[in-house]
Design a protein around this nucleic acid. Structure first.
Length: 272
DNA sequence: GGCCAGGTCCAAT
DNA sequence: ATTGGACATGGC
């Protein structure tokens, strides 16, 4: 079992923040799958212990090169962000595989994290070479995907796989956010929200600020005095206010809103 | 049981 | 430019 230092890192917050779906708790740590790599990893203080991958891969995937102190410094001046930043300290935006990210977030539409996770696992089990997620050319047909209960997402997944076969998604990393968005939005089923997720989670666009239902609600409450605000206004506001690391602000707002919302919407446990 | 969920598309304002 | 309904399925 190899090990590397990991200052300013929380494996749990990073994996469990809803940006990525191919992990499961295993013993004291996690088993993680990215493309055809299956590895186990656990955190012990400021060290990461892992097997099944090499140190360069781990540093790259977990974005240990992101300058977290600078990102916190840039964001924690905002009184709204201070608490969630502290609560989820060490959460990093992963470097996901673009195709797997596209597929996961196409699956995410009008869904929820437990179901997305199930759907992604089902696709990985059904096509290609399990447990790796199927590459675009291995993806199932619309009919096969419907049989996996993907519903209306099946058509989009199948079409996206067809378009992704030429490797276009692999040429997105490092390009300007607007170009990345525009190219992704040519794929049927991808509009602004999914494009922004892929830009953020797989193309290195840390300024991307995906506006989903949780972020919309929490942004309206925290910054728009509960007024109506279009997603475009919310994104423009976020870009101005949060700057080049708006994506980090988005992820802590998302996970904070979701954890509060999920707790709050369930009846309190009745004492025995 | 009906409403709504990490949305998108299309048609009708 | 903005708004409403359809789209599948599942959880509450």
């Amino acid at each position: 079992m190899k090990s590397i230092p990991c200052p300013w890192f929380s494996l749990r917050h990073t994996l469990e923040s809803g940006q990525f779906f191919r992990w499961r708790r295993l013993g004291e740590g996690y088993e993680v799958i990215r493309r055809d790599r299956v590895f186990r990893v656990r955190q012990e203080g400021d060290r990461l212990r892992f097997e099944g991958a090499d140190a360069d891969f781990i540093r790259h995937f977990f974005a240990l090169d992101h300058d977290l102190p600078a990102i916190h410094a840039a964001l924690e001046g905002d009184p709204v962000l201070r608490d969630p930043l502290e609560r989820y300290r060490g959460l990093r935006i992963l470097r996901q595989d673009p195709w797997e990210c596209v597929a996961a977030f196409l699956t995410s539409m009008a869904s929820n994290i437990p179901r997305i996770t199930r759907n992604v696992e089902d696709m990985a089990a059904a096509f290609g070479t399990p447990p790796a997620f199927p590459r675009p050319e291995q993806m199932g047909t619309e009919t096969q995907l419907r049989a996996l209960r993907l519903g209306f997402r099946a058509r989009y997944l199948a079409a996206a796989a067809g378009l992704a076969r030429d490797g276009r998604l692999d040429r997105l990393a490092g390009r300007p956010h607007e170009e990345v968005r525009a190219e992704l939005m040519e794929i049927p089923g991808i509009a602004e929200k999914v494009a922004d997720c892929v830009a953020l989670f797989a193309c290195g666009r840390l300024e991307s600020f995906p506006v989903d239902t949780w972020v919309r609600k929490t942004m309206r409450r925290l910054y728009f005095r509960n007024r109506r605000a279009t997603d475009l206004r919310i994104r423009e506001f976020a870009r101005r206010r949060f700057g080049p690391y708006a994506g980090y602000a988005q992820q802590v707002l998302f996970i904070a809103a979701r954890e509060a919302g999920v707790r709050g919407s369930r009846p309190a446990a009745r004492p025995a």
